[in-house]
Write a protein that binds this DNA or RNA. Structure first.
Lengths: 359, 359
DNA sequence: ATCCGTCGTCGAAGCGCTTCGACCTTCGGC
DNA sequence: GCCGAAGGTCGAAGCGCTTCGACGACGGAT
């Protein structure tokens, strides 16, 4: 029926089935689909009708082979600890959705396969471009990306950004924002409860930059600030917070950049008899949704995962079209004020052991 | 240099470059790579040496076109609320890792593109098989999957499993296990704090099956059980738990199937002055890691995301090789005892069977 | 010796698509 | 009324790979 070839037919209609059905040449169908040449309205609609009727879908492999474009981008996700899982998911979703809008699909890679995986994917022309998340300051993949021969965009900013394209939230500014908000409310001693120590050791940009932003702004505003790393479990959070207030009873502002810690922080403060926000103000750097659902609702600097995802896709698409793009794109953070921050207490809060009603 | 074609060379070495370099035919290189025909050790090593030397990677599109196999499977992830994000991530990781072991890559799709996306992907031969997560009891995608013409595996079990392949944790049994554990400790009134109401309404299998398992086992063991849905925010959790104990002050066992609720449940119990496990025992159905990090460490029935991911990949691979596979694969749940469960408090009608040693 | 069955290799025919150049109409301009 | 430029369509040449059938060469059985 379809072709006189010696092989089994695949079952799916091919472009030549469509051409035959519409009574035109194969190339005409191709041009209808790609719009790369003018086609009369009559032919165009006849072809489209045949396509619909036959249920034709272009074969991705053939298309990739002939056009040298796979219409697929790779997304390399971090899948180790110390990573804010919901943020990653939001980000992945945004990437998939945006990519579809550009008529691309997304191939999922994990970091465990390492640089070798990247190389395989790119050299095999399975993907046209690469998005890499969770980039470290001194990432082993960076040199590889430079000579990959395919456009890539990093989410996160390594130490040396030459010949790269990076996009991220401006975490330095985010840290600043938190401090400025607290300083503006009269807080004079604050603490940053950050990511797990491993994340700092690894040289993950966002953690370092936030901390730097916090400390710099604190210095500028004459606020005392201490920064503590913090593991992602309730016990460590409790230990850190208790220790913090033991050493510095007059801390009245807490910046939390660790989703997993938010709940335990609140519980621990309650257990210590410190009320939020009357005794201690809390600012989180976390997904908005998360802050919205906490109790009390948290003042926060949301990580705009969706926006970053969209930007990353848009940047890689621009690079695919050989358009120039900036090396570093930093998104401006915004602070949303909710119920967890208030004017600093006049004096040290009293260590009550009264009825610790949660909330 | 490479071929006398009229088009621009791609830059990457092709199979014919390798053949020329090794002094053999193109087909010989192909057979060395696929192992589908016998090749002498000498030729074989010469070819492999050329491959390494030239840095050859087969072109994925060409391979897919010629072999009618893309070596890619699709993973359709749920990306809406009410979904246990970390579990999804664990699962996705396991799928990617397992797929790589079978020499396949993973294309990421989100549910929002809907059935149309599935169709596009499958008809376009972009993928060889499909993994669908978060299947509802009466899922719109199920009929589509049946006639997709490509192997598929569902994670989750819809109402009608004919002509499908499903894999999931045996949530019914998981519910049972929780109840049996609590009943064995002498608890006589228990509650299930479940998924958000929307998840039940949507007909998501795991929520229904857990609830059914809990209620059935409770009835069989003469335990009073109530089941409450529960939103994923601290305020609702608190509200539910407070309400629960107001209505049923003698509840001494709590089964929590909602990751987001675990923390708030503990906070609320603390606020109510109910100690875990002395006054209330808590069993969670959640990732092990999560339970391990809670304070106190939680007795739980872990969701073996990795194992499910591995099984799903293995099943779809078997289907790709036309091997028969079972319609439904249910993994046996296991209960891990930790510090959050203990003998029921000797309150009202004490358990008759066994000495209820209390503290 | 002869025949046949392996083994190892090769050449060529596609897989389904894009794209380039060619070709045939029209049609506006002079 | 003729020419050249658009406008619209076609045929054919690949893209880089897999796979089929062929074909020497060899060796054991006859």
């Amino acid at each position: 029926m379809s072709g006189r070839g010696g092989r089994v037919p695949s079952g799916q209609p091919t472009i030549s089935d469509v051409a035959r059905h519409a009574g035109v040449a194969v190339s005409t169908v191709s041009y209808v689909l790609s719009g790369k040449r003018a086609i009369s309205e009559l032919t165009r609609s006849r072809v489209l009708a045949s396509i619909r009727l036959l249920g034709y879908h272009p074969n991705a492999g053939a298309r990739a082979l002939a056009s040298r474009r796979a219409n697929v981008i790779a997304l390399v996700l971090p899948l180790r600890s110390g990573i804010q899982v919901p943020v990653v998911m939001q980000f992945a979703t945004a990437v998939v959705t945006s990519a579809r809008r550009h008529d691309h699909d997304v191939l999922l890679l994990t970091s465990d396969e390492g640089p070798e995986g990247l190389h395989r994917i790119a050299a095999g022309a399975l993907v046209d471009g690469v998005l890499v998340m969770d980039v470290e300051l001194d990432d082993v993949r960076v040199p590889l990306l430079r000579e990959l021969g395919r456009p890539s965009v990093l989410i996160g900013v390594p130490a040396d950004t030459r010949a790269l394209t990076c996009v991220d939230l401006d975490f330095h500014r985010a840290g600043q924002l938190c401090v400025e908000h607290l300083a503006g409310l009269g807080h004079r001693r604050i603490a940053l409860l950050g990511a797990p120590a491993a994340v700092y050791d690894r040289g993950t940009g966002f953690a370092h930059r936030t901390r730097a932003g916090v400390l710099a702004a604190a210095a500028r505003h004459g606020v005392d600030a201490v920064a503590l790393p913090c593991a992602e479990n309730a016990a460590d959070v409790q230990h850190r917070v208790v220790g913090l207030f033991a050493r510095h009873p007059d801390v009245s502002g807490l910046i939390v950049q660790n989703e997993a810690a938010v709940g335990p922080v609140q519980a621990t403060l309650a257990a210590l008899g410190r009320r939020v926000p009357q005794d201690v103000s809390v600012v989180a750097v976390c997904p908005d949704q998360f802050a919205e659902h906490a109790n009390p609702r948290l003042t926060c600097v949301p990580v705009p995962a969706e926006e970053i995802g969209r930007q990353a896709v848009s940047l890689v698409m621009r690079k695919l079209h050989d358009e120039p793009v900036p090396e570093v794109t930093l998104l401006a953070p915004q602070l949303t004020v909710r119920e967890s921050t208030a004017t600093a207490p006049a004096r040290q809060p009293v260590a009550v052991d009264g009825p610790a009603v949660c909330g």
